[in-house]
């Protein structure tokens, strides 16, 4: 019964930190919109058993280089976003 968490704010907002409090093993976190700015912070605090993703288009739009995300965060395009939604039982959008 896994959950997809989306984050659409930078790490100066509480969206990421609040999400990290309740994300659990088997869940996924997807960074979208301004949430992609939080990718470096998210790399530094990986969670046990939580898959991390960032939306490719939003990285590109903001001049962020997907290749610097190390291996911990995978990029997905909009189709991948839809797949993630379908693969999880519910979504929680943190903003």
């Amino acid at each position: 019964m896994s959950t997809l968490h989306t984050i659409n704010k930078t790490s100066t907002h509480s969206a990421l930190s609040s999400c990290l409090k309740v994300a659990r093993n088997g869940d996924s976190i997807l960074l979208i919109e301004d949430g992609v700015y939080a990718s470096s912070q998210l790399c530094q605090s990986p969670l046990e058993g939580v898959a991390l993703y960032a939306l490719h288009e939003d990285l590109l739009a903001r001049g962020l280089d997907a290749s610097t995300l190390s291996g911990t965060i995978k990029t997905v395009d909009y189709n991948g976003f839809v797949d993630l939604v379908c693969q999880h039982q519910r979504c929680v959008s943190w903003s």
Partner: peptide, 12 residues
């Protein structure tokens, strides 16, 4: 976290 797992839908 458990409440979220037991939910059909979550709004934030």
């Amino acid at each position: 976290a458990e409440l979220i797992r037991e939910s059909d839908v979550v709004f934030t």
